[in-house]
Write a protein that binds this DNA or RNA. Structure first.
Length: 551
DNA sequence: AATGAAGTCAACCGCTGATGT
DNA sequence: CACATCAGCGGTTGACTTCAT
């Protein structure tokens, strides 16, 4: 008679289904948007009667042609729903029940390799469905997030790291990149350099550290990678080889920025100290918060960790899958919060810069799920072990209070300790150099007081300038002089600190791109190891460390 | 015991690529 | 080549359950 127009129109109904044996179920009222134009397709939970009909149909006709199920059986379900029901619940050989520890490990390993490719992961887990895996992963993400634990345990990271060098045809590079770019899978941000990682396994970030991870930490690690080339760290799968873990290509980009910052900061030891970077050279700086960059990036650990939230005005697909140690919903440090929340007043924007969520070691009670079968314990164990090791007292370290487990605590960061004299001399250049990280632009006219970062005048990027805008738009309107879109090459992270990069618009644009404006840009692996973003091949970019601007 | 938070699960939705016409 | 359809994928939502207070 008439067919379902498309699967998006599942609600459309065949007229002849009025006589369906399961028509009674439909009348129970679940979803009936088309009452006037025929019986609606049923939504909601399947009944055993419906299951029986579907099973019977598949036995007779085999899988596929799911829309025909509706026609041939009178089942008031759209083909899509039938397929899903069959695939997830009715097909034989489905494994039910909780994941085994082995399966959990496999999932984590696969996710480290593939990102959110649930179907492909399911292919590696006989009897498991993509939906199951997806649910498991999301739950796990949530749990780890609350606990401030890394998503990938060290063992998995190490294994993935080594495997990753072998696995290249297993999955498509561009897929990985784009997916990971979008999903921010790079939650786990261990040391940026393999040397560091190997020499100092403790550099492996763990929960409390990561939850308070700052750009300073990352920068500090980056400082150690003097000879690393930006692109050298990118292998064909878009991961950071040297990281000791698989890191998405986004991290490459970030690393490029950091390398550039490296250039900047390395040549400005005094400035570094003045800005509170001096601890970067300390062995265990990871639990500290850096205020000046905190303005710019402290919250951005969310970004650096790949934590985006669609609950903020950002591209929708970025929300749930994102492994996040700092839920932007609860984390006052969220950089995106500052960047994208238009309603916030500058004064409101300030305090969070000084606050750092500190996860306590005593996370187990809350975070250990009774259903967890091992991996989480592994993480917890690791976290606890490391927390004891790494939490060395420091003169400058934040005083963490006695928190309830997993409680997010705001601690005034003592890291912000500007040298007034130096700041007076250099703040304007610093502002110009660093502002882009924040999503705000410092104004040079801003009176700067060494003791108080909150006197920074922050001019917010308007929502219209946020990364949530379409890829074709100008993400960040240059707050200052620059007009028009800069050439993509000029937006390369390494360019940010090279040459006369004092133009904040360049930084702002670059950050906008990093944050998503360019996320939809074509990102393809290039034979030879480079990655092209759109038409601009980054493989040609100079080694960031070769830029001598700040040497 | 009541209540709210968190976790789990099933299902839906929108999008995309493949295929057919 | 354009369009329609289908199958599949990934993200999201909502109902239900479990747990903690």
């Amino acid at each position: 008679m008439y067919r379902v127009k498309s699967e998006s129109d599942c609600d459309m109904m065949l007229q002849d289904q009025m006589d369906s044996p399961v028509a009674d179920d439909v009348s129970s009222g679940e979803g009936s948007p088309h009452r006037g134009s025929g019986p609606p397709l049923k939504k909601g939970p399947w009944t055993s009667a419906e299951d029986a009909i579907l099973v019977d149909y598949v036995k007779k006709h085999g899988e596929g042609n799911w829309n025909a199920v509706q026609k041939n059986t009178g089942l008031f379900r759209c083909g899509k729903s039938c397929r899903l029901r069959w695939a997830n619940h009715l097909r034989p050989n489905l494994k039910k029940g909780a994941f085994t520890p082995e399966e959990e490990r496999l999932i984590i390993q696969l996710h480290a390799k593939m990102g959110n490719k649930w179907a492909r992961m399911a292919a590696n887990l006989p009897g498991r469905t993509d939906n199951e895996i997806k649910n498991y992963w999301n739950t796990r993400i949530k749990r780890c997030q609350r606990a401030g634990l890394p998503i990938y345990p060290a063992s998995v990271c190490n294994q993935s790291s080594s495997e990753d060098q072998q696995v290249s045809g297993d999955f498509n590079c561009s897929e990985n990149i784009s997916n990971d770019l979008l999903s921010g899978n790079g939650l786990y941000l261990p040391d940026f350099t393999s040397d560091n990682f190997i020499a100092n396994p403790d550099a492996l970030s763990y929960a409390p550290h990561l939850s308070a991870v700052s750009i300073g930490n990352l920068l500090g690690q980056s400082f150690a990678s003097k000879n690393c080339s930006f692109m050298d760290q990118v292998d064909h799968s878009g991961m950071l080889k040297q990281s000791g873990c698989v890191l998405p290509a986004l991290s490459d980009t970030i690393d490029g920025v950091l390398s550039s910052v490296d250039q900047f900061s390395n040549g400005s030891e005094k400035l570094k100290q003045a800005l509170g970077f001096d601890y970067l050279n300390e062995a265990n700086a990871s639990s500290k918060t850096i205020a000046p960059f905190g303005v710019a990036l402290s919250g951005s650990h969310a970004f650096l960790n790949g934590n985006f939230s669609a609950s903020r005005p950002i591209n929708g697909p970025l929300k749930r899958e994102l492994p996040s140690l700092q839920d932007t919903e609860s984390d006052p440090n969220s950089w995106l919060k500052y960047t994208l929340a238009p309603a916030m007043q500058p004064t409101e924007l300030v305090d969070p810069y000084l606050h750092s969520p500190i996860a306590t070691p005593s996370v187990k009670s809350e975070c250990a799920s009774p259903r967890n079968s091992g991996l989480l314990e592994e993480l917890l164990h690791e976290a606890q072990g490391r927390s004891g090791k790494n939490r060395q007292p420091s003169v400058r370290s934040s005083s963490s209070s006695a928190n309830t487990p997993c409680e997010t605590t705001t601690v005034v960061s003592p890291e912000f300790d500007l040298c007034p004299e130096y700041w007076d001399d250099h703040h304007s250049s610093f502002i110009n150099e660093c502002a882009p990280f924040s999503g705000y632009s410092f104004t040079e006219s801003t009176p700067v007081s060494a003791a108080s970062p909150d006197i920074f005048q922050l001019s917010k990027i308007s929502p219209a300038q946020s990364p949530s805008m379409g890829s074709g738009e100008q993400a960040v309107e240059p707050r200052h002089e620059s007009a028009g879109s800069p050439h993509p090459e000029n937006l390369r992270p390494d360019a940010l600190f090279s040459g006369n990069s004092a133009d904040p618009s360049t930084f702002n644009n670059a950050i906008a791109i990093l944050l998503g404006n360019d996320m939809n840009a074509e990102c393809k692996p290039v034979l030879g190891g480079g990655i092209t973003f759109g038409s601009s091949s980054w493989s040609n970019m100079p080694n960031a460390c070769e830029i001598s601007e700040f040497k």
